[in-house]
Design a protein around this nucleic acid. Sequence first.
DNA 1: TAGATTGTTAATCGATTAACAATC
DNA 2: TAGATTGTTAATCGATTAACAATC
Lengths: 213, 213
Amino acid sequence: MERPANISNATISRMPGYLRYLRDAKLVGREYLSSSTIAKDMAISAVLVRKDLALVSSVPGKPRYGFEVGGLIRDIEKFLGYDNLSAAVVVGAGGLGKAFLGYEGFQNYGLNIIAAFDQQVREETVRGKPVYPMERLSSFIEEQNIKLGIITVPKAAAQKVCDQLIEAGVRGIWNFANTQLSVPRTIVVKNVDLAASLALLSGELANLLQQSK
Amino acid sequence: MERPANISNATISRMPGYLRYLRDAKLVGREYLSSSTIAKDMAISAVLVRKDLALVSSVPGKPRYGFEVGGLIRDIEKFLGYDNLSAAVVVGAGGLGKAFLGYEGFQNYGLNIIAAFDQQVREETVRGKPVYPMERLSSFIEEQNIKLGIITVPKAAAQKVCDQLIEAGVRGIWNFANTQLSVPRTIVVKNVDLAASLALLSGELANLLQQSK
DNA sequence: TAGATTGTTAATCGATTAACAATC
DNA sequence: TAGATTGTTAATCGATTAACAATC
C-alpha cells in the first residue's frame, strides 16, 4: 500500500468531503474543477484544497483547467481504501445499531456492515441483514475474518463488548457508546462524540439568541 | 449569560467529556480529583485539563487536593447550558431519526427532542414521542418556540427541510444528512460527518494491518 | 502571448506542551 | 515545614493562509 504516512489527520478527515462533492459534481457532468470552485462550494480555502488534493492525486492539476473530476474521485477512493470494502459488524441492535445495519449509505464510504449482534434478538433481520445473539459473536468474527467492530451498546456494556471483539480478532473499533474504552496499543479506537458536536452547536446558538435579544 | 466568548472550540468540545467523566467519578464517591488523575484517565495532558477547567470553574482548584467534583459538574453543566434543556425536533423518521427520538441519553447533554416529522408517518409514536407529518412542522415549531432542528432525512431532501426549519423560526441546525447546507449567516449549522471519523479509523486500521503482515 | 490556475515556500495563527513560580 | 498540585508564562508544534514563481 503506497498510502503516504505523513498525511495529517486534518487532511484525511476532509477527504470524504471532497469525495462526496466530486461525486455530485460528476453526476451533473462536470469534468474539470478548479481549486477555487471547490473551495467556494465547500466553504474552505483554495490553497487548502490544492494542498490536500496534491497529496492524494496521481496526476497534478492542470493550470488553466483545474483538476480532472473522474481521476480525482478514483484517487480519493483508492486513498481511503474504498476500492475494497471493509466488512464490519455492529454490536448492539438498539435504535442506533439498527439504523446503521439498515443504512446502505456506508457502502459509499467503504464500509459494509454484514451483521448485528445483541443479547436479545428481537428481530431476526433488519432490512435483510441478520441480527444474531451475542453467543455467536466470536465464531462469526473469526470465520468471516472481520477486522472492524462498531459498538452501539449502552455505556455500561461497552467495555465488555470491546474486550470480546478484540479477543475474537477485531483490530479497529468505532465506538458510539459514550465512554472511554481501554484497549491494547495495537488496537485502533475512534470515538464518535455527538455530545461534543452538540456542545459547539448549542454554544453558538446560545450566543446567537443572546445577541438577537 | 456570562459565558466567556474567548473559549476555543477545542476546549468547548472537550467539555462534555469532562462532564461525563466527572459524573461517573461522583457516582463512585470521588469528591476531589487532581488534573493529573483526570488527564491520565481521559488520555489527555494534565496542563490541558487545568487550562480547560480554569476557564469554566467558578472556584479555583486547590493545591494538594485538586478540583472539587460536584462544583465542577455544576459549573460545566451551566457552561454548556444544560441547566435549561433545549427543546428540539428531528426531521426524518428513518432509522437514525427514530433512534434519536427514542434515545433518552440526550437529556444528559442538554437536549430534549420532543417530536419527529416525516413525509410518511409509519408509526404515530416512538417510545412515547410523537411523529407528525411534515405539514405540521411549521406550526409546531412556531407554537413550541423551537430553536433547534435535527436533520436526518436523505441528502436529496435536506436543503428543502433546512429551508422549512429556518422559515419556521429554527436558528440552529444539527445536520446528519451528508451534504453541505446553505443557510443565511444568522443560522448556526453543525454537520456531523461520520464519514470523516470513519476515514481516520480505516486509515489507521489499514496501516496497522499492513504492519502486522 | 496573456491569463488563469497550479504548486511551493514563507508567514501567521491557534492549540498544546514545557517550565516553573505560587499556594495551600 | 515539605510536598503535591495549581495557574501562568514562554516555547513548541501543527495546521492554515499569504505570497508568488512556475506552467499550460
